[in-house]
Design a protein around this nucleic acid. Structure first.
Lengths: 198, 198, 198, 198
DNA sequence: ACCTGCGGGACCGCCCGTTCGT
DNA sequence: ACGAACGGGCGGTCCCGCAGGT
């Protein structure tokens, strides 16, 4: 791996932390310079604009989450177990953060308004893939009779994502993991008693 | 009401819209000037800084939500009915927005990091009062045997807030109310079947 | 006249000198700040961009030349005398400069390439009005039999402008007025012997 | 010819086009990179600075003009015919450009102010050799009785250069060759009727 | 009492010309 | 000949104070 690529990756990794903590607007190039130890020219050798860097940093942050999810799902076969593992992963985003500042998708979704269409599209894509994964697990679980047939796939998908993301927001706001723990606890109980086919 | 107070209120109302749509960092004084039709001096007559204006604008935006909640709860006596009414109000934040841009508490909670302690404190206070209201309704509902005694007050409170705010985020991200509708539908069913005492 | 307008005019006057000496690209905002004694914010209160300032500065510089021309033509009735007066005025642009750096129209015409369409259009307009003035004088002179009927209006117009502007370029390049004096001398002799109707 | 020398010459040739079209300030190293297909390092291998490249590019551009002049004068013996040939060559700078963007000497003379002494000196040298050539032709023509003895050598030299350069400026400004054609037409007639000894 | 508009100055994102190790 | 890094300068915008006018 070349020196340049190493530097480039370092910039992305450090910036991703910054953007997730302070937001895209809230992070200046000076912040990025300080965090990376590079001068402006050194950064602009690798990225044509701050926005391009932001897009790549978001992709990187989301990919970190995805990797942790993949690892957690690897040895889980049962659909409900897979959902529980996914919930657990999101809980670790607070308890043992990959990227400080909460969930990158949530943060970006809230910050990216109509004036940041590229960033918003990135957040939508990330959310799309998250939703698709959940729907796949649930649908397959129904087919395999691991999940009760009367479960509404889309409603459950949305409930899981919404309640988890909302809980992450609460725990970030109060800097207290109890909110994500409570929601995790509720969802776990719900999945076991109302969703799992026994 | 004096001319000055009128102007001041107008600035707050217009800025609240701006801040909720574009965020605190994303809204410049020039934006506020354009939106209010005033010059910079005119704005700084009423507010010592952009931050002070932001704080008051947040309070205003949250008070609008609170008012709508109060109005919806006014003629509801039963605890579960009150919870359902509250859910319905938050649904209208998307369907019929008081302030464009989603939920001000959510937006502010996500944007306000450690570098914006004042704004963060405002968001926490708002969230505190929301939680307190829910806990009061639920606790009273249990006492009056409108709500089942085994319901965990804090868990239900957090679930309701988290799932609603998360759903608002989803609907804002996709500009599609279906997410808040799905969550609203789930929560309604849940409250009726698992929470309400029959 | 308000304070702001005074400042605005001062910026234009000082910038016009700068642009005429160093060109549009060659003059930075720092140069303008030094020359005007204002900070950037003070300058940008009056002009939305450096380009807008450049356009107004060019108009100002050209208007100074125009005024001197008008003053010189005021008491000249005969067409040839008017042409001679105009030549004399352009000679004074070197001997007693209104704006240091030669002829603003020449400078702008040479600097403004396809990438500066607005500036180029300004230079064309200025040149248009100069050509139109000359053609008017000559045409009227022919009609009044002050100028020989066989004179080719367009050719004489172009010759006068081209040779004067070219001579200004030479005198600027060498910082020596002899070139404009030589051309002035030639043109004077030519107008008296070949153009004036006797 | 070595690879390095080839590259070096290519850089000069491409840069000369660029500088003549956009000026020295108006052409950035990025422009030169794009035009040459080289990276910055590749350019700085051959030239110690942008200014040094500019000087060599100017010399190159002027040498192209000189070559065309030499070729046109080669088979002309009579002094007036030589002057006419020279006028024709400058006309072709517009009609059939060697280097897009007009006359390099004119462009450089106008752009190079006191802050660019080296470039200005180059332009002066070029103009010196042009003047010297004209004076040589005229003086020799007088001696050989091809040109009338009463012709003022310096005045004619300056007139020819000034009017031609001025006309090139006009034709460049309007992107219309008619101005150089008119002046060429005038000068031709003038040389035949007032200068040539019959 | 209220608002305007001017001016300040720090900072923004970005591009410049340059150097140097490979 | 490249490409990484530099560091300062670019044009431009930011938020803010203050004098002045109505």
């Amino acid at each position: 791996m070349s020196k340049g690529t190493q530097t480039r990756d370092m910039i992305i990794a450090r910036s991703a932390q910054l953007f997730n903590r302070q937001g895209y607007f809230g992070s200046s190039l000076s912040d990025i310079m300080r965090e990376t130890g590079l001068e402006k020219g050194g950064i602009y050798n690798h990225f044509g604009s701050k926005e391009q860097l932001a897009l790549e940093a978001f992709d990187y942050a989301f990919s970190l989450v995805q990797q942790r999810v993949q690892a957690a799902l690897k040895d889980k076969k049962n659909a409900v177990d897979r959902l529980l593992a996914l919930i657990a992963v999101y809980q670790t985003l607070i308890d043992d953060p990959l990227v400080a500042g909460g969930c990158p998708v949530l943060n970006t979704a809230v910050e990216a308004d109509d004036a940041q269409p590229a960033l918003r599209a990135r957040a939508q894509n990330a959310m799309d893939s998250l939703q698709a994964m959940l729907q796949r697990i649930i649908t397959k679980g129904i087919a395999l009779q691991e999940i009760r047939p009367e479960v509404n796939v889309e409603e459950l998908t949305t409930l899981l994502i919404a309640s988890i993301e909302g809980a992450i927001m609460l725990s970030s706001l109060y800097q207290d993991p109890k909110h994500i723990h409570r929601v995790s606890s509720y969802l776990t109980h719900y999945l076991e008693t109302e969703v799992r086919n026994r």
